[in-house]
Amino acid sequence: MILQIARMYMLENLRNVGVLFGNLVTPFLFIFISWIFKISSVVSEESLLFIIKGQFMSFSILLLLFQFAFSSSTIYLADLKAERTFNWIQRTDATPLKYYVGMGIGVVTLMNINLILVLLGYRLLIDIPLVSMAMIVLVSNFVLLALYPLSFILAGLFRNGKVAQSMLVPIMLVLMFSITMTTMFTSLAGKNPHDYFVFLSWNPMLYLNDIVQFNLDLIQKTWMPQYQYFLILTGLSLVLATIARKVYSIR
């Protein structure tokens, strides 16, 4: 039953060509731009490596995770509510929990397949150890764990998928640029970005970005030990799941 729900979630997302294209185009576009940079030799080998690892690849991973783990599920959940799908589901033997778990499996599967494809795409251009790839995949799944309940909270607040879609743009800007811009500007100012991370600790993308940067050898150590990131993300997921239970109503 749960696997069937997962399968249907994936089918719906794959067949929704507009959303699928929107989800894939930006992460893969950065691979294409990286390739153009590489073949055009406009920058030195060292600068190219820094640009790809520090900007393009980090941004691809963050965007991909945002789109597949958060944006798609928020829109989907808002539409489930608007279309009163649970009026039907609640009369079957599928409990809401089973339904959300099934949908979650679909989200995890789609995100991981695309993430691995993106990482393999960059691996064609630069050297990325398999261990680093595995670590990036692992932390991405923990971030997904935190973002998935957040999508229920937002879907509970928005009237339907279209409203959710329009609101997700500023949310994306806040979640992503609060990390990438802070890191970039503090670095340019000659300061250590880690000194400011405490103010961004509410943002799950912070932990992803820091571990990605560490595993790509851009920084010598993470802000906190990596195991603590996993604990924080798990804790954040539990807190958000508790709020989500109150905010997202099936009626």
Binding site: M8, L11, E12, N13, R15, N16, L80, E83, R84, T85, N87, W88, R91
Partner: peptide, 15 residues
């Protein structure tokens, strides 16, 4: 114990 047929069915548009 009650099933209802609504006037239309709008869910799962891409299935």
């Amino acid at each position: 114990e009650i099933a209802m047929q609504y006037q239309t069915f709008e869910s799962y548009k891409h299935l």
